[in-house]
Amino acid sequence: MLHYKKHVIAEDAPWVVFVHGAGGSSAIWFLQIKEFVKHFNVLLVDLRGHGRSKHITTSKEVRHYNFEVITRDIIEVLDDLQIQQAHFIGISLGTIIIRNLGELAPERVASMVMGGAIIRLNVRAKVLVAVGNFFKSLVPYMWLYRFFAWIIMPKARHRKSRIMFVNEAKKVAQKEFMRWFTLTYELNPLLKYFEEKDTGIPTLYLMGDEDYMFLPAVKYIVKRHTNSYLEVISNSGHVCNIDQPQEFNSRAIKFLCNVSLQSLPESVDTMPQLAAV
């Protein structure tokens, strides 16, 4: 089972589950925990091969990872803790896992907060994936990871996010990195399916205004899907929970509290501004 850490404030409090991206770990949410535990029970998981979930063995049947295997790892933790339903918050590739959870077990997902959401791969992203697949067996994987981090988060203000993710990626074994990289072969058909199918699950997209690779696709998708909202965080790149943690926390908490109260507004723009939390 995945390694996890939980913070329980009350038995009847709603749960929030944090899902990190590829190469990260639950440590990337260190700027969120303090604020979220004021309102919710919090569950942080380390995906297989990441953080303290390195012990998970891979059977012959799942030698090559796919999104269903990784998603069911999270469902197994929910079952073990007897969490019937929760809000889910993800960053980067973690948003794809959450969206897939909404497909496999929609009754378990009260809402989704998608930070730096990956909705569609633009031409630059497709080229990046192709380059990675070509060189993955020829160069050390950390060279590729540093290169990807710089392409996706290029500005000086993204430096903290880049360093955080590179440092976490160093803890992932090369063989494990290769297994995760095989997921790129699934991305295009899976993302196309997600784009065409509207789950209706309340979803808030939190995107940095400098997330040039993925923000345009999110702007498009929120116009097509019901119960989907977008908030753009200024002076922030792809990893907006680290670039602008106060904005990320306040907007996400406001949204989740509204969902918990079953009082979603017609538009995020009509929500009253939250005081700093």
Rank of each mutant, 00 (worst) to 15 (best):
K136L: 13
A173T: 09
Q244N: 12
L144P: 14
L138G: 00
F181Q: 14
M114Y: 14
I9D: 01
T95P: 05
F194I: 06
T270V: 06
I96H: 05
K155E: 15
F165S: 04
K170L: 14
C240A: 14
I83L: 00
E61A: 15
G132F: 13
I233Q: 12
L47P: 10
F148E: 09
V123S: 10
T71S: 10
H225C: 03
W29Q: 02
P245C: 06
E266N: 15
V259A: 02
G102C: 03
F147C: 12
R159D: 07
E76I: 00
V62T: 11
I83D: 01
F255P: 13
T58D: 13
E231F: 15
S236M: 05
Q262A: 08
V166K: 09
P272Y: 13
M1Q: 09
M207Y: 03
R157G: 07
E107Y: 03
A86S: 09
A275L: 04
L78Y: 00
L31M: 15
S26F: 05
A217Q: 08
H20T: 04
V166T: 10
R120W: 07
V42Y: 03
W143N: 01
N241M: 11
I75A: 04
A173F: 07
S161L: 08
N241R: 04
V19F: 05
V109S: 00
I151R: 12
K126S: 07
H55Y: 06
R48C: 01
S260C: 04
L31R: 15
V139T: 05
C257G: 11
T71I: 02
P106L: 02
R124I: 13
H225V: 04
F18C: 10
Q85P: 06
E76Y: 03
V19Q: 07
S53V: 01
G51C: 05
G132Y: 08
V129G: 04
D243F: 12
P245Q: 10
Y220N: 15
F88Y: 03
Q84G: 15
A149F: 04
V69C: 12
G237R: 07
M112A: 10
S267N: 11
S263Y: 13
S25Q: 08
N41D: 02
G116S: 09
E107G: 01
E35N: 14
Q273I: 10
Q174V: 05
F135A: 08
T71A: 13
F67R: 04
I91F: 02
D209V: 06
I28G: 11
D209H: 10
W150A: 15
R99K: 13
K223L: 03
N133H: 08
S92W: 08
G51E: 00
Q82A: 14
M164N: 14
L191E: 00
R52W: 03
T270E: 11
R120Q: 07
K155C: 13
N122Y: 06
D12E: 06
A156R: 12
H55C: 07
